[in-house]
Design a protein around this nucleic acid. Structure first.
Lengths: 393, 393
DNA sequence: GCGGTTTGTTGTGCCCGGCAACGTATTTCG
DNA sequence: CGAAATACGTTGCCGGGCACAACAAACCGC
């Protein structure tokens, strides 16, 4: 039961809408902004002046238009001067990047992550990557935040990593550890990697313009970033989207989460490698080798892929029936699995899915590729700026 | 990429917030409204004046407060003069009601629904109920809309009932048929019965104040009304929440939807009656007889109930893992099943559910009882008024 | 260079809500 | 019973936000 916005909230929202537009769509003429945002020329002028004054955008000379009339000024995000640090904590990899307003990756570092590395041990490594990148930051540039994407369940309120079977983390305060290590005074936002990737694909990837999407992200486990009605589905505690632990086989194979027959146990890394007869292998490279082998005609690999693809379609169909999404995106290892078994996926989907839900659903692979998680993490950090550009800038 | 609200939208939203508050919470003093809505006394005064002018609220003499100071005026919804018609199309029952602003059922009619009655045949019956109720409407009262709750998949854009296996409806334009039959010029909103019930329980039932809930509604089939982040989860076409057709047994029992092993085939009416050895029975009474028998110690009935309860817990656990809701509500026949098999439900939930998701989830039965669907249908109709009180009034 | 066209800029006005001063209704206390 | 205290409604004023219109500026085609 909340009242409507006050007038300065209007201003904030309009500033945010403008900044978000140039952040997502890149340099934009003022004329275009007036039509897109539905605001008056004079208002757009005032807003850009405010944002330029805060150093968030710059106005440049117009592009050659070819048409008659005074050319419109171009509003550009300050892609170099305003940036966020983004981290992605994956099973066997730590990624760090400096991402400019506008979404460009300005700098990056990657390092292998020893399995069973705890948050307190990871934080110095992550901070080190940041310090390595720091000298390249131009003078006067300002960091608006740090975003961290972790493959695990993250408590919304404080960013505590509750449970991340693939990394072995339980109640790891990665945000606090990182804050202590960095010693810089910027807000740190921690989120789930699938959520972050979904967010990025929703903002500037294949799902641009879609309001209802499911981004399925496979690593060792499987999670989903879900956007419903244009907003992230977080759930009450922030643990929404744990579709990998939807049980698809009652009393099935034991899962790391303690339950049995989770979807993950049928389509996760372990399941596929085991089915392909590679019990000792792990990691993404091993997985790709299976897909390769299947592509080259290896019968056992083909069976494994087909079987996993069948289960992939099974679970996706269930999710489609529940959410009625506009698009399902297959990211991480799910991308490879989907591409290798699209026939099985579609077949299952068509047999299980309700026809009304199948009508408009599109199956896609990510547009942002491996960077989706990083860009999404940055997007999490930028979100604060976009909600209130002048205060957070 | 939408701009912030304009100034008259502020007004609309504030009017809506005030009207919604008295609609949900009943008569409220102006003083309370100022604190709840965070608006100034003068603003509340202006808003109530506008609403009173439109005949939506009335201001009354203050209640005895016992405290010092001038007593605050009481703002009351015009519960008799402003109303909506609500319909609920269930498998073997048609309900109609006149619901006043504030949510009170002012008048009601119920009739049996012959199975296999199509929308065009149902519309005259529904219209007849309305005409029966019409003479009792006080002079000067105004109808703000008609809400219809149907146990089936409803297209959001136009209210077409796409598929409703229990009633046998396929692409039935109940909204249009009703509009033609009624001949009155008020907007007709059609929605899913589970959605409507969830909406009602969220607004004024057990889930008041909860932002993430799953309302499980059982009739012949099973559907869910889902509220995520405080907003209804509709999905892209409006078909979200069809959890009854989440497949829980791969290649299991054939379902009316064309698929196999849907949740519905394990916990729906047919499943329970069959398991209890009552193959020829149907309807709610037959179902209640099974629960009765189980309560009295009938072994076969007990086994049937336990088995269905086990599957109920299974599906609920999956949904809890996916959505991380704050509350799960068991309505319709699911209420009876849940009450009769709470032990099984909790047991499955605890073994399958992720511990983080189980932390805060509460299992509840509806507070509004059998009226939830009707009140929810009315709520759908009121929604338009609450979004823009002065225009829609 | 000149008209036509499109856009930036500036000044004005409307609307909304906050605020403070004043009037009013009720309780409490002497 | 009456005055002080308390809380509230009402009124007028103010600042902020955006739309609008008039004017100035920049570009195109001729």
């Amino acid at each position: 039961m909340r009242a409507g916005p006050s007038q300065d909230e209007i201003r904030r929202q309009n500033l945010g809408a403008l900044l978000r537009y140039v952040h997502v769509h890149g340099a934009t003429t003022r004329a275009e902004l007036t039509t897109v945002l539905g605001l008056n020329r004079s208002t757009i002028g005032a807003l850009t002046a405010d944002l330029a004054g805060a150093g968030l955008v710059s106005e440049g000379t117009p592009r050659e238009t070819g048409r008659a009339g005074r050319p419109s000024l171009v509003v550009r995000p300050e892609a170099e001067r305003v940036y966020a640090y983004a981290y992605s904590v994956e099973v066997d990899r730590l990624r760090a990047a400096r991402v400019g307003l506008g979404g460009a990756v300005l700098d990056r570092r990657e390092l292998d992550r020893p399995r069973n590395l705890l948050a307190e041990e990871a934080a110095p490594l992550l901070a080190g990557a940041l310090k390595e990148m720091h000298p390249a930051v131009p003078a006067g540039a300002v960091c608006v935040g740090v975003g961290v994407a972790v493959c695990g369940m993250v408590r919304r309120d404080d960013g505590l990593v509750r449970l991340s079977p693939p990394t072995g983390w339980v109640d790891e305060p990665i945000g606090a550890a990182l804050a202590a290590e960095l010693g810089i005074d910027v807000p740190i936002t921690v989120g789930n990697v699938a959520d972050a990737a979904a967010f990025a694909e929703h903002a500037r990837g294949v799902a641009a313009g879609c309001e209802n999407i499911i981004y399925l992200y496979g690593d060792v486990g499987v999670g989903a970033g879900i956007i419903a009605g244009g907003r992230r589905l977080t759930g009450h505690g922030g643990y929404g989207g744990e579709v990998g632990h939807m049980v698809v086989v009652r009393d099935g194979t034991r899962c790391e989460c303690g339950s049995r027959g989770c979807w993950e146990t049928e389509i996760g890394e372990h399941a596929l490698l085991r089915a392909a007869g590679r019990h000792d292998a792990r990691g993404r490279d091993a997985l790709l080798a299976v897909f390769d082998a299947a592509g080259r005609g290896d019968a056992r690999a083909q069976t494994a892929v087909r079987q996993a693809g069948d289960w992939l379609g099974f679970g996706v169909a269930n999710l489609v029936n529940i959410f009625n999404p506009e698009m399902v995106i297959f990211g991480g290892t799910m991308r490879d699995l989907y591409l290798a078994s699209a026939a099985q996926v579609r077949s299952r989907l068509n047999s299980i899915g309700l026809s009304a839900c199948l009508e408009h659903v599109r199956l896609r692979t990510p547009k942002l590729g491996a960077d989706a998680a990083l860009v999404g993490a940055a997007e999490l950090a930028f979100e604060r700026l976009l909600a209130d550009p002048l205060d957070a800038g």
